[in-house]
Simulated scan of single mutants.
Amino acid sequence: MVDDFLIARNPGPDSRLPYLVRIPLGEGVVLKTKDVWPRTAKFYCHRTHEWPEDAEIIERVPARSCTSRGAAIDLLLDRRRESRSQFVITRIRGGRQAIFWQTARTTKQARPNVGLPTARAQGVEDLQILVDSHERYPWRFTHQQAVTKRWGLPCGDYAVTDGEQVAAAVERKSLADLSSSLTSGKLTYVLVELNDLPHAAVVVEERYSQVFALEHVRPAVVAEAIAESQGRFSTVPIIFAENRQLAQEWTYRFLAAAREELRMGAPTAEAISTMAAANPAPPAGPTPREIRAWTREHGWTVFDRGRIPAEVRRAYEQGRPVERSRPAAPSSARS
């Protein structure tokens, strides 16, 4: 049963974390923290197993929901402002576990308890990713084996090229940006441009489930718009990648794979064309109607139906008059 979310003063006089929070999950999760709400930056939290009996409670807020999903605890409070937050369990230097308290405004630096791979994308040495010159706070791909270059892209925020051709592009969206561009119709024009590329995608730095937690627009409207966009532009998928790091990782591997696919496609098409030239299809043979017409022109009567005699076919192929070695067809069967 969901209980109240409590904030109290930490009775420990020497602690650098002057507040206690009690998360209404199970028997209650108690954490020491820096402040009463992560407004501008995420907070480091330290786990403690004691909630003081005489705690000086600063704030008590009813919780509408409190759920644990993987390495995160999602908290929704029953108030208009500062109602949504998340406690993320992650790993820091040395592999030590740490807990951070964050809100939607500070999630860009959050890393759930997922170890991102460091292996190079298959078939790629050092991938050069073009970043649109209008992109604010761009991904730098420092975790991946890639280099970035600012460029005025015709569409998308990140792209790779094969020679002078754009091999693939990715449009980056936050959930709020996706929602507004869908409802205003702007995303349709973006998808039209992306659809003309060999490979393209839209990547959202959020989970799909958060679509149904939107407050300033009906979630069903956004969900329906997403479905309609995917039905119309099925070759441009909309990927929900949970957070900034995972969205960046997916984009890196997608761009690398798309460029490699384009490079492999050209030699394959050339090889198929070469094979076709070396092994041309045999020319189509004459039709029975053509043979019968030719033999009649040379004074021989043949049946309108049935198998054409072998010597007649050979004569047609050799281009000489048919020898009258076969009896004429009965008058009733002649043409």
Rank of each mutant, 00 (worst) to 15 (best):
L116Y: 15
E82Y: 10
R96P: 00
R69Y: 05
I92P: 01
R111E: 14
K108A: 14
G94C: 15
S65N: 10
N113G: 04
R64M: 05
Q86N: 07
S83L: 07
R93W: 07
F100Q: 00
R80Y: 07
E82W: 06
L116G: 09
T106Q: 04
G94K: 10
R69K: 10
E82C: 12
L116N: 09
R81H: 11
S65C: 07
R96D: 04
T107P: 00
S68V: 07
R91C: 06
T90C: 13
R64N: 04
T106M: 01
S85T: 11
D78W: 02
R105N: 10
D78Y: 05
T67Y: 06
R93E: 14
L75V: 15
G70V: 07
F87T: 05
Q109F: 00
F100E: 00
R105S: 15
P117W: 10
I92V: 13
E82S: 12
V114G: 01
R91N: 04
P117I: 14
W101Q: 01
R80S: 08
S85A: 13
T103C: 06
L76G: 00
L76S: 11
G70M: 06
A110L: 04
I99L: 14
F100H: 00
G95M: 05
D78C: 05
L77E: 06
T107L: 03
R80V: 14
R64V: 07
R64D: 13
P117Y: 09
S83T: 04
I99D: 02
R111I: 08
L77S: 04
Q86E: 15
S68E: 13
A104I: 10
G115M: 08
T90I: 06
Q86Y: 03
R93N: 11
R111Y: 09
K108Q: 11
P117H: 05
S83A: 15
R105G: 11
T103W: 07
R84A: 14
F100D: 00
F100C: 00
V88D: 02
G94A: 07
T106P: 04
R80I: 11
L76Q: 13
R81N: 08
T106H: 06
T106R: 06
S85K: 05
L75K: 01
Q102W: 03
L76I: 13
P117A: 11
A72R: 12
T106W: 03
I99M: 13
S83N: 15
A72N: 09
S65T: 14
K108G: 15
R91L: 14
G115W: 03
W101F: 09
E82V: 00
T106C: 02
R81S: 12
V114L: 14
Q102R: 10
A98Y: 07
R96G: 01
E82G: 10
Q102N: 07
R96Q: 12
R91V: 14
S85I: 01
G70E: 02
R80Q: 11
I73F: 09
I92Q: 15
G95E: 06
T90Y: 08
Q97F: 02
L76Y: 11
R69T: 08
